[in-house]
Design a protein around this nucleic acid. Structure first.
Lengths: 326, 326
DNA sequence: ATGAAAGCGCTAACAG
DNA sequence: CTGTTAGCGCTTTCAT
């Protein structure tokens, strides 16, 4: 790895000029060429570490997501990456497993690695963004919000919950249960509130035990659905507040031999591509990738020095209704 | 962000002593305490960038995988992460999309970011590892190998292909086709050779068009299976050489109304957790996570200075047979 | 437009 | 065991 000194010597200019060439400063075309030639001959690549030490910042964005195995988050990550790449930034993916300790650790790394900014889907309300924020690093919360004063991009979760539930009501189901995510996570709470609003307004028969909180994964949805089916008066339809729990629910339904012709399922989120999805499931399509590009865009603007007041962008979901019961 | 100088001043010692404390060198217990106190009071965190510039290396491992949405690779990534974390290393995940250009770009980043080493599943035989290797950075190829002189961890793909096909033969199927991955990727070629070996040895009826090369994704498997079913004499069983293509095949089968009671499917790889898998599919369980931990282990040893001759570790797959036909 | 020179924060000789 | 000191490679005033 050659240094700017070697390039400078070979080109017959000063190191500062070499630096200028590689940073788009004004340099006479002649010296420009000289430097570029020398650099090519030496296979010179600027040392990012030295640059970072000097500039106190890198072209790296940290992306902290709760579950790398959830297609929703990988899609989101793709969105972030796309936008970041365009701007010449790299993205470092960090899997927090919804574990505040891991999250904190990664936040620390982001700071001590002098990353340009952080996009995160907080594992809990108690994320400590204090350190990174007071360092002046831009932070954008995505999908979930935080009490800290940072920009945010989220989904209109209440509307998504309403849409999913409404589709079931319109399809003629009578007893609609809800498999919601863990308490304390705003996004899933809003979705469940959407369900509650609709069932209340439409006078739906909701029995004791029709609302179940589960973890966000397949096994959570599976267990919750099993419990629902074991009820004295089981529901005839279910809303799940995320994609993975719906997969678990489908599995439980299949195991119990319940046909989806007679049982309604609506998901806030999309069934993963991999799932052999029955066409009779209503999906509320979440703009995961768009969430990512939007968050990246906001972050890049902040990194570029944008100082406008804090913004929260709310994205709207699409409904893909299942065909009517028949 | 306080520096070692500020800590040193507050503790009444030299900067070097502070550095020593944070690097586990021998320091008198007394000064040790002084330094730690001062550091705590100032919320000091060592600046990784400066350290890296000085040491010419970081505690970061780059992991380049072809498809972040494939559960096989996320499992592998988990393995790498686990082992790396234990050793105090961070892992940067890079998604190459099987695109040699992206791969090269990431390799360049790994070099200019002075990462400690690289684990990669090469997008093609033509990866240019020359630069990174000549830089002296350890590299471990995982799942796929390369012509470059680097350590490797792979699966006994031939045996896996044999196992999958044999299960189908033993279950009594007569005409067994193969949906293989793209040509030029060693792992899938070996699996397909396993199939060929078995069908030849067992005198299986293999018609024209029973071997299909597809891309590694769901749509590839889907199209290939459709083509197979459209044949004059369609097969009664299929081996797919990876997990995602099997999902596509299942989908095509479902669309065509073909029941898995009468049609055999064997996968080299595991159907993703998300898939509502019929129990009648034979899966050859690939030790994805173990592949990751093993690769990470080898890389860490190299980073630590291990200079033994190049090694290639071959891991063996497990078969999860489907129940017999009938 | 260009060069000289001063660090960014840390580590590793080298002395003591 | 501890302090002094010289860089790692780069960017950025400050002069010219």
């Amino acid at each position: 790895m050659a240094t700017i000194y070697e390039v400078a010597a070979l080109a017959g200019v000063s190191p500062a000029t070499v630096s200028r060439v590689f940073n788009g400063r004004t340099v006479s075309p002649e010296k420009q060429r000289l430097v570029l030639d020398a650099a090519a001959r030496l296979a010179f690549t600027p040392n990012k570490t030295a640059r970072r030490l000097r500039k106190r910042s890198s072209e790296i964005i940290a992306l902290l997501i709760p579950d790398i195995e959830n297609p929703f988050y990988t899609a989101l990550a793709r969105g972030v990456e796309d936008r970041a790449q365009e701007a010449g930034f790299s993205v470092v993916l960090c899997n927090t497993d919804d574990d505040p300790a891991k999250e904190l650790r990664y936040l620390g790394i982001a700071a001590s690695e002098e990353m340009a900014g952080v996009i995160l889907s907080p594992a809990s309300d108690e994320v400590d963004l204090g350190a990174i924020v007071s360092l002046g690093r831009p932070v954008v919360a995505v999908d979930r919000t935080t009490p800290y004063p940072v920009d945010a991009v989220k989904i209109d979760n209440r509307a998504a919950g309403i849409a999913a539930t409404t589709a079931l009501v319109d399809a003629g189901f009578q007893r609609i249960a809800c498999i919601a995510g863990p308490l304390g996570i705003e996004s899933t709470e809003d979705r469940f509130l959407g369900w509650r609003q609709v069932v209340a307004a439409r006078g739906i028969d909701v029995r004791e035990g029709y609302l179940r909180h589960a973890n966000f994964r397949v096994d959570g949805g599976h267990a919750a659905m099993k419990a629902l089916l074991a009820l004295d008066a089981p529901p005839d339809a279910v809303v799940t507040t995320n994609n993975l729990m719906a997969v678990g629910a489908l599995r439980a339904l299949a195991e119990a031999g319940v046909s989806l012709d007679a049982f309604g399922l609506a998901v806030v989120g999309e069934l993963p591509d991999l799932v052999l999805a029955p066409a009779t499931v209503t999906q509320v399509r979440l703009p995961a990738r768009h969430l990512g590009t939007t968050a990246a865009q906001m972050l890049l603007e902040r990194i570029a020095g944008d100082a406008q007041p804090l913004r929260t962008v709310v994205l709207r979901a699409d409904v893909i209704p299942a065909p009517p019961v028949g």
